[in-house]
Simulated assay, not measured.
Amino acid sequence: MKIIAMIPARYNASRFPGKLMKDLAGEPVIVRTYQSALQTQLFDEVYVVTDSEVIYDTIAKVGGKVLMSKKEHDCGSDRIAEAVENLAVDIVINVQGDEPFIDKISLEKLIQVFKEDKDKQIDLASLKVKMKTKEEIENPNNVKVITDQNDFAIYFSRSVIPYPRNENMDIIHYKHKGVYAFRKRALLDFYTTPMTPLESAEKIEAIRYLEVGKKIKMIETSIESIGIDTPEDLEAAKKEFN
């Protein structure tokens, strides 16, 4: 089973343009992320896939494997799907380009899902983490996920799910972490399917997989990754790196 990591890297991030090229302890953020993915030693190959010549040249300069997107894409899954279409791989792990502090433990759990899935019933695996405060749970920027009794995703939403109508029940709310492990076939099916109605309404790409009948295994993790979405995040990352 060949397992690769794909790091989608878009230059013009809406909240922090050019963040992947910002300096983090002497190297651009995207280089730090690429190096961290290599250092896990979990993958047969690690690629950066980008729409930016600047990012392409930067990764190539450090001897990294990098692919240039040929099309405009609305989400990371589409960008990765285009890149792997002609690659001989079985499992593709989406590593976020703005998260240089790789959570190796959680990635190992995602990979193990497919090693144990002998009948190839699982299309994707992803991560969920418990939310502890009312503010977290009600924040629409936190995508919530509910699962069945076997930890397969039922639905994702920016709204509060499940809604606590019965206030006497001790309900656990989970946030979806946007780290995915895909079977290649599931990724290509996503790529060739138009945006679905619920996905369009919520602006959550994971919903498209559910709407077309894919099975998503959710793995609980307690590790909150450090992402770089703002200049303040970058300063915090510099302190963490040092």
Rank of each mutant, 00 (worst) to 15 (best):
I7R: 02
P8S: 11
P8R: 03
A9Q: 07
A9V: 08
R10D: 09
R10N: 12
N12S: 13
S14Y: 08
F16G: 01
P17V: 10
G18W: 02
A25T: 06
E27C: 05
V29A: 06
I30P: 13
V31W: 00
V31E: 02
S36E: 10
L38P: 05
T40R: 03
Q41E: 15
F43E: 01
D44G: 01
E45R: 03
V46G: 08
Y47E: 04
Y47K: 00
Y47D: 02
V48W: 02
V48R: 03
I55N: 07
I55P: 13
T58I: 06
I59T: 06
V62A: 00
K65N: 14
V66P: 12
M68V: 07
S69C: 13
K70H: 11
D78P: 09
I80T: 07
E82T: 10
D90G: 04
D90C: 00
N94E: 14
G97V: 13
I102E: 05
I102N: 03
K104S: 13
I105T: 15
L107S: 02
E108I: 03
L110T: 09
I111A: 00
I111T: 00
V113N: 01
F114R: 01
F114N: 06
K115Y: 10
D117A: 08
K118D: 08
K118G: 01
D119Q: 10
K120Q: 12
K128Y: 14
K130M: 07
M131E: 11
T133L: 08
T133I: 07
K134G: 02
E135W: 06
E136P: 13
E136K: 04
E138V: 11
P140H: 04
K144M: 13
V145A: 14
T147G: 10
D148S: 06
Q149S: 15
Q149T: 11
I154F: 05
I154R: 14
S157E: 13
S159R: 12
I161L: 08
I161S: 15
P164I: 07
N168K: 13
N168P: 00
M169N: 10
M169K: 15
I172F: 06
Y174R: 03
Y180D: 05
A181C: 09
R183C: 04
K184R: 13
K184S: 08
T192P: 03
T192S: 14
E199A: 08
E199W: 03
S200K: 01
E202T: 14
K203E: 11
I207S: 14
I207V: 14
R208K: 15
K214Y: 11
I216K: 11
I219V: 15
E220H: 05
T221V: 12
I223C: 04
I223R: 12
E224I: 10
I226W: 12
G227F: 09
T230S: 15
E232Q: 13
E235S: 07
A236G: 05
A237I: 06
K238Y: 03
K238V: 07
K239H: 09
F241Y: 15
F241R: 13
